[in-house]
């Protein structure tokens, strides 16, 4: 049986949590298919990819070069194509992060195979079957792979990483640097003054909408997020369009689709486009002054009332819980 190849993702030489999610998914697929899991880690010389072996990879190939400190699409494409020449892989798995959303389609195009993008579930019963939200989560499509090979990207937070000890090999190899034609190169990465957790990757998201009344009031949500920590602050389309928050924070059909374990919708009425982006959260809490707001229809827990009174109290209580825990 053809193997499973995982593309690991790093930042500053450290594997990201999404890498463990993907290795976990790969292990469970490989066990059902009776095959192995190989992983490729590309990054700077200081790259530490040993973590991947703890989550079920059989072999981890480390391609470390300081030219690969940042994501360089052509280096990744080349590394995977070369690897795929030496060994038969039926499934190439990666995370549907900014990197994976760019790399997945490139790999599928060059490997001449289909791409199942941003899936929330992948199984192997009678062939490979994936589920992927479409129409921004207003519907879910189940697809069967009817090709000998497939690239699959998995939505962050849809798999819980599971550690499992096994004997794995780590192997260092040389990253080929030349390209076969003109390419796009990532020259630099502008990081915000304060490191910020992305709403798509965070396991707790605190989102605000027009009910916050003005941009400065998002401080209330930032305080709550900090008390909950680590948590990201998200926003509805209305406040992004008004310029209160950046587009990267937007949750919804023309923003990000998120699946955190805990989602707070604060001062958000719950337009259909917003609900589409967060309905796969495990637990939803809504705080809104309008008891008839549509957000209460999807929320697990709701509090009706003035968010300016409720949120500071909530932050205080969470701080107490965190201090006691």
């Amino acid at each position: 049986m053809a193997g499973v190849l995982v593309i690991l993702e790093q930042r500053d030489g450290v594997l990201k949590k999404v890498s463990y999610e993907v290795v976990t998914a790969a292990r469970s697929l490989a066990d059902r298919l009776g095959t192995g899991v190989d992983a490729i880690a590309i990054g700077p010389m200081a790259l530490d990819a040993t973590g991947a072996t703890r989550f079920g990879a059989d072999e981890v190939v480390i391609l470390a070069d300081d030219h690969a400190r940042l994501y360089q699409p052509h280096l990744y494409v080349r590394a995977v194509l070369e690897r795929a020449k030496t060994k038969d892989y039926g499934i190439v798995l990666l995370s549907a992060t900014a990197l994976g959303k760019d790399l997945g389609p490139r790999l599928a195009a060059r490997l001449g195979c289909p791409l199942a993008a941003d899936v929330t579930d992948v199984g192997a019963d009678d062939g490979i079957v994936v589920s992927r939200p479409v129409y921004a989560g207003k519907a879910v499509c189940r697809l069967k792979v009817v090709a000998p090979r497939c690239v699959i990207s998995i939505r962050p937070n849809s798999v819980t990483p599971v550690e499992q000890s096994r004997t794995a090999t780590l192997q260092h190899a040389v990253l080929g640097l030349d390209s076969e034609g003109p390419v796009a190169r990532t020259a630099s990465m502008k990081a915000p003054a304060e490191a910020k957790l992305d709403v798509a990757e965070a396991s707790i998201v605190v989102s605000g909408g027009r009910g916050l009344k003005e941009p400065a009031n998002f401080k209330l949500l930032e305080d709550l997020a900090q008390a909950l920590g680590p948590a990201a602050v998200g926003a509805s389309r209305a406040v992004v369009d008004a310029g209160w928050r950046v587009h990267g924070d937007q949750v919804g059909q023309t923003g990000k689709t998120v699946s955190p374990s805990l989602y707070f919708a604060i001062g958000i009425s719950g337009a259909i486009q917003h609900l589409a982006g967060m309905r796969t959260a495990k637990v939803i809490v809504a705080i809104n002054k309008d008891k008839d707001a549509p957000i209460f229809k999807v929320a697990d827990y709701g509090i009706v009332g003035d968010l300016f009174e409720i949120v500071p109290r909530l932050t205080e209580e969470i701080k107490k819980v965190r201090a006691g825990a």
Partner: peptide, 20 residues
């Protein structure tokens, strides 16, 4: 290389409750 088996509405969320 992908065959649609099914398109469905997402599972309804369990009805929640207003705590106060």
């Amino acid at each position: 290389g992908l065959e649609v088996l099914e398109l469905a509405l997402p599972p309804e969320r369990k009805p929640g409750r207003i705590l106060g």
